[in-house]
Structures are given as structure tokens and as C-alpha cells.
């Protein structure tokens, strides 16, 4: 197992986390960490507990054992909204967008809540905010749809919108749950490029669940692999690619 490279603690640190649903152990004793400014991948066959781990991290449900540290604080008892306000944001596998609002409105409502006062809520919102919203929509390629109702977009476009919304909220770290699933294959390269720019230009740390091996091997600098709720392997992409346990897990041999 690798050690932290930098002086300070990593941005996200998951320590010995266990999560049970009734008798089923969805995550058993999982430890991983993500350093500031990096892109880390999380892979594993269906039902290996990736999304459960995401849910545990963002406070969608309490964990049974272990600790989760983000940005210097233990957050496993925090509520979703509090964690989001600390700058840890996630996107969903099945998109969650505000269907009866336009794309622009979706963006404007995703502004970072942590810097907001109550009186900001009762103001019309500044021109600079709108400009930023438009810029980000342009960044994900939804500029021409900006006045359309979000609910009228295709699934892939909704995913892009959700991604743009996450960026709008200026997070320190983004957890992306299968960003390329349901996206038109011809657009995937563009998306990967955007994810990289997000990391490089905006300085946002990424933890990405992904099934598309080509994408994740390309994108991530370090990869964790889960199977049956346990951490199976961890390492740089080329190591994971050749790890017999990972291959077996994906082929269903283990």
C-alpha cells in the first residue's frame, strides 16, 4: 500500500469503513485515500459496493464502523448538505437534475452554498454569476440548450448538465459515479478531456467510479478496485491492468 506523497494529510481519507444493510455487508473494512489535486479511479464489478462507498462518504447514510476524513475533519456523522457545503460534491449514476427548471436556472441554483448569506437568497443574482453559468454550460457543450427545460434533455445531456452543476458549486473534490455511462460513445473522448481540464485548470480533485476500462486507465493516476465489498487491489493503472485478481474479478472467476 502506498504512503502519502505530500506533507499534509490527503484531502479525502477513508479508514476501515464498514457498511452493512441488514445482514449484507456492502463494504467491509475499506481504506483508501485521495490526495489533493489528483484523479483517482474506483473500479469493480457490479454490486461490489462502489456506489455504497460513495453514499457513505457524502453522508447519505451512516456507516457502521470506521472513519472518513475530508479536508482535515472527520465527516462520517455529518449530513449530506453539510458535507456538500464543505466542498465535497457528488454526481449520481442516475442523473438528478431539476427537470422543470431551465439549464441556466439549474446552474444558478448550484452556486456554492457555503459562501452564501441568507440575504443572497433574496436577491436576483449577479451578472457575474450568470456569465459563469453560461461559461460552464459552454464548457460542457450545452450552450445552445441553456434556455431549455432540463427535463427535456437526453440522458447524456442531463449527465453533462449535472457535471456542469457540480462545477458551478466550486467544489474542492468531486465524486463522479460513472460519468460516461449513457453518453454517446463519440462524445466520450470530449468528456474525458473535460474531466482532465477540470482537474488541471480548476484544481478540483476527482474520485471517479467507471466501468469503461479504457477511460479510467487513461484518466486516473491511481486506481482502487473493489470486489464483494472488499478492497481487492490498488495501484497505478498499468499495475491494475495486469493484476490477475482484478482480471479474475471482472471475469467472475473469484
Amino acid at each position: 500500500m502506498r504512503e502519502w506523497q505530500a506533507q499534509d494529510r490527503p484531502l479525502l481519507e477513508v479508514k476501515n469503513v464498514t457498511k452493512r444493510f441488514g445482514g449484507v455487508v456492502a463494504n467491509r473494512n475499506i481504506s483508501l485515500f485521495v490526495e489533493r489535486g489528483t484523479i483517482v479511479g474506483l473500479i469493480g464489478p457490479n454490486g461490489s459496493g462502489k456506489t455504497t462507498l460513495f453514499n457513505s462518504i457524502v453522508g447519505a447514510h451512516p456507516i457502521d464502523e470506521g472513519e472518513i476524513w475530508f479536508d482535515g475533519r472527520e465527516i462520517s456523522r455529518y449530513r449530506t448538505a453539510q458535507i456538500a457545503r464543505m466542498g465535497l460534491m457528488r454526481t449520481f449514476q442516475q442523473t438528478h437534475i431539476f427537470g422543470k427548471m431551465t439549464c441556466i436556472e439549474n446552474m444558478l441554483i448550484s452556486m456554492p452554498e457555503r459562501r452564501r448569506q441568507l440575504r443572497d437568497l433574496f436577491s436576483p443574482g449577479s451578472r457575474a454569476d450568470r456569465a459563469r453559468a453560461v461559461d460552464l454550460l459552454q464548457f460542457v457543450g450545452l450552450y445552445s440548450k441553456r434556455h431549455h427545460l432540463a427535463g427535456s434533455l437526453s440522458f447524456g445531456q442531463q449527465k453533462l448538465l449535472e457535471f456542469a452543476m457540480a462545477l458551478m458549486s466550486e467544489p474542492k473534490m468531486l465524486l463522479l459515479d460513472e460519468p460516461t455511462a449513457g453518453i454517446n460513445p463519440t462524445l466520450i473522448n470530449g468528456l474525458v478531456d473535460r474531466l482532465r481540464r477540470t482537474n488541471a485548470e480548476l484544481g478540483i480533485t476527482l474520485l471517479v467510479i467507471e466501468h469503461n476500462m479504457r477511460v479510467i486507465m487513461n484518466l486516473a493516476e491511481y486506481i482502487y478496485c473493489l470486489a464483494h465489498g472488499e478492497l481487492l487491489a490498488a495501484g497505478p493503472p498499468e499495475e491494475i491492468r495486469n493484476d490477475q485478481r482484478v482480471i479474475d474479478a471482472y471475469l467472475g472467476a473469484s
Binding site: 457545503r85 460534491m89 457528488r90 431539476f98
Partner: peptide, 8 residues
């Protein structure tokens, strides 16, 4: 989603 965005 509103909660996930950190809204009060």
C-alpha cells in the same frame, strides 16, 4: 439533489 448541493 438540492440537499446534495448543500442547500439549506
Amino acid at each position: 439533489k438540492a440537499e446534495a448541493l448543500g442547500h439549506h
